[in-house]
């Protein structure tokens, strides 16, 4: 049944080459944790992607309740945390996942660094990977404000003060992020838009680039 559906679509759209590009390739033994247990260090990249998928899914469910305005932001998060069925679990996954994704990405970066896998011809993939790192940091920074409690409010104030101290560009960056002269309603909506639309869009584009490059260049050889 499934096969005939596949064939039906394949006859019309010729999807087999796409499938082959995505899935049908070999993986060498030195990165396979079933062959060498120490090869689990090669799993950190995949795990980062796994947690990122969890972040996207849990974040999508969170926006069903979250309201990005200064009166209701806290109230909606509190409602989600205390009243909504499994709300505490979904918010917990998004909260702890945010930390975990940083940890996994950091370990992945260290693995690539210490195995020298960023060397020619993979320089561009390293640069894209670092850009992903910065986008993730940005996601963490903007997401931290959204519950709109005192901790997030004051941390954001400090962050924006630090941004402000950059010469020439600082005040412009601060005003752009803050959307005014104080950390307030505009800041919250801006951080929400950046966290939910801008950065995830950039992240997905970079991830596609990262994966296409690893597929084209293959996995770096054993040491």
């Amino acid at each position: 049944m499934l096969k005939s559906v596949y064939n039906w679509v394949d006859e019309r759209l010729d999807i087999t080459p796409i499938w082959r590009d995505v899935a049908d390739h070999e993986v060498p033994e030195h990165v396979n944790p079933a062959h060498h247990f120490s090869a689990f260090v090669y799993c950190f990249g995949g795990l980062t992607f796994f947690i990122t998928v969890i972040q996207i899914l849990s974040g999508m469910f969170l926006t069903m309740y979250y309201v990005p305005d200064i009166i209701n932001a806290y109230a909606s998060v509190e409602f989600l945390q205390t009243k909504v069925a499994f709300g505490q679990i979904v918010r917990g996954m998004h909260h702890w996942g945010a930390s975990l994704v940083i940890v996994m990405m950091f370990l992945h970066t260290l693995r690539v660094f210490f195995t020298g896998s960023y060397k020619a011809p993979r320089e561009m993939n390293w640069v894209v990977g670092m850009l992903i790192f910065f986008v993730m940091i940005g996601l963490g920074l903007t997401g931290y404000l959204l519950p709109w409690d005192n901790k997030s409010y004051f941390a954001t104030k400090v962050t924006l003060e630090i941004a402000n101290s950059v010469p020439v560009l600082g005040p412009i960056i601060k005003e752009l992020l803050q959307g005014g002269t104080i950390v307030g309603a505009q800041t919250l909506t801006r951080f929400f838009a950046i966290h939910v639309f801008f950065l995830p869009a950039v992240l997905l584009i970079l991830l596609v680039g990262h994966f296409i490059m690893i597929r084209r260049q293959g996995i770096s050889g054993p040491l």
């Binding site: 917990g92 930390s99 901790k151 400090v158 962050t159």
Partner: peptide, 25 residues
Amino acid sequence: TISEPAPLGFPANPTASVIPMPDWY
């Protein structure tokens, strides 16, 4: 996730006295 619920404080209040703390990373 199950053993440690995500933290949530009190609503942002610019006059509150809080030690500002960014996320751990």
